[in-house]
Design a binder for these strands. Sequence first.
DNA 1: CACCATAAGTTCTTTTTTGGAACTAACAAA
DNA 2: TTTGTTAGTTCCAAAAAAGAACTTATGGTG
Lengths: 167, 167
Amino acid sequence: MRWEELDQQACSLARTLAVVGDRWTLLILRDCFLGVRRFDAFERRLGITRHVLTDRLKKLVSYGILYKSPYQERPLREEYRLSEKGLELHPVIMSLVSWGDKHMSDDRGAPIIHIHKTCGHQMHPTTNCSECGETITAKDIRVEVGKQWQGKLDEFLPSRADISGKK
Amino acid sequence: MRWEELDQQACSLARTLAVVGDRWTLLILRDCFLGVRRFDAFERRLGITRHVLTDRLKKLVSYGILYKSPYQERPLREEYRLSEKGLELHPVIMSLVSWGDKHMSDDRGAPIIHIHKTCGHQMHPTTNCSECGETITAKDIRVEVGKQWQGKLDEFLPSRADISGKK
DNA sequence: CACCATAAGTTCTTTTTTGGAACTAACAAA
DNA sequence: TTTGTTAGTTCCAAAAAAGAACTTATGGTG
């Protein structure tokens, strides 16, 4: 599979990764959530090459995750800001950070801690059911094929052969 | 910044991406969560080259996210299974899928739907505060430097210059 | 005016990473 | 003996990223 075909796969994970699944994009978005907005600030902070940064910012704008907003004219200068769609990637960043805090930290603990403004406590994110509110783990979820996709995911859902090794 | 230096950054996102942040790893993990366990099943399903698949599986095993478990001897055959550490990446997958369901779906809706076994409803994940349980969005969170990192993240936290453009 | 600085790129060359296909080892079955 | 299965490895070509220099438009300094 080539990378450009990824956003046409019948899988929301693959489609999302087509947008944010490369080496740099999520690091750029992390900086966006920290308030960074300008080309040279991203460049300085990330140590990314200008060529790749240009490409990734263009891609994020083309997908509507960032938008350009002029902050001066003559010469025209624009900054990159998170759209609503981009802000909704916050759970992705939070879950990655939370896993890293738990599994990739040294003995100094998490470099950055998160405070829930409403309750004032230091928190980490939990993943909950939108319907009953309960906290969920991998084992609490069962997957099914969406109504309009029935019979069309034979290629995607793992067959018994894929799972059990039988032919 | 070179990719190998990423897991030494003072940022849990960067450290996590050092493990799962490449083109293929999260797709491999998606298949693991769907029950796929064997080399040739990953290869068939993903259309990944064997070379890259070997490399990624090795990396995932070395980080303790997958472990090898023999399912036959003579000839020795091993399958790859999610460890506890790997299972804890479920929120990452779920948040990526959920974003894709909302923003990258065509008019047929989500290809795969998720049922919460406990309550029986079709659900999507929400991100909640571990302390008060409330659902959170990007704007509900404030970040601070962890106690043992105070004064050591000057390089990391965006300076006023990065945010406002001032020098 | 000549010269330096700034922001946001673009262009060029080298290195690294993938893609694609063929080859290998250790058996098992026909 | 030939063919098949599983899990790789090897090799070469193509694509992507790193690194550094160049560009454009403009503003400020001496």
